[in-house]
């Protein structure tokens, strides 16, 4: 009996091991969950990259000095999710401003062709992003694919000329590494995370 069952037991173990490995130990069944887990385990270095902000000036994506950078990806004519996410981002900004945390927040456009500085200004005004702590900025079109790849953001055109994307808040820590991802409405989680990592 035993010798007959041996190949089956062996293959079942290999199979379960494969599935265990393929789900990061039963933790990640979607690619979104997988990327969130991965960046916490192995934070990814963010290259020195310049973005163009609402006033047409260049600003670095990476944190300068002791600051932390929060990034969300948007396109300015986004109708639904970015609007809500923008309101949540504003809430985070208000909270951080009160606490005086050295944090910079950037809404990065993944549609740099359409999102001109004027267009980004309209978006910024609509969400009260005044450019001090929180600004709206765009990468150079040729640098966009690498940027999206680094953050594992998938942008696909939708049926109405807009886009759908895995919207989230991305944290670049003081060492200049992309180290955490949160839901756009996880305000408390983001604040707690920043508090824990500020000491």
């Amino acid at each position: 009996m035993m010798p007959r069952a041996l190949p089956s037991v062996l293959i079942a173990s290999i199979g379960l091991g494969t599935l265990w490995h393929a789900t990061d130990g039963g933790q990640a069944f979607t690619s979104e969950a997988a990327r969130r887990l991965d960046v916490v385990r192995v934070p990814r270095p963010v290259p020195a990259l310049q973005l163009e902000d609402m006033s047409g000036q260049l600003l670095p994506l990476s944190p300068q000095g002791e600051e932390v950078v929060l990034v969300e990806f948007i396109y300015t004519v986004c109708g639904d999710i970015c609007q809500i996410a923008g309101a949540d981002f504003a809430e985070i900004r208000d909270q951080l401003e009160q606490r005086g945390e050295p944090v910079r927040m950037i809404s990065v456009s993944f549609d740099p062709k359409r999102d001109t500085p004027e267009q980004m200004t309209i978006y910024g005004e609509a969400h009260e992003a005044d450019g001090k702590m929180w600004t709206v900025a765009r990468p150079r079109p040729e640098e966009l694919p690498a940027l999206l790849k680094l953050f594992d953001v998938t942008v696909i055109p939708d049926e109405w000329g807009g886009f759908q994307h895995n919207a989230a808040i991305h944290v670049i820590n003081r060492d200049g590494r992309f180290s955490a991802v949160f839901d756009t409405d996880a305000i408390d989680a983001v604040l707690t995370h920043l508090e824990e990592h500020s000491s």
Binding site: G15, L19, T23, F29, T30, S31
Partner: peptide, 12 residues
């Protein structure tokens, strides 16, 4: 069955 389950995972 293993291969079937593997490709059923949304991330795959």
């Amino acid at each position: 069955l293993t291969v079937f389950l593997f490709w059923m995972l949304p991330r795959n």
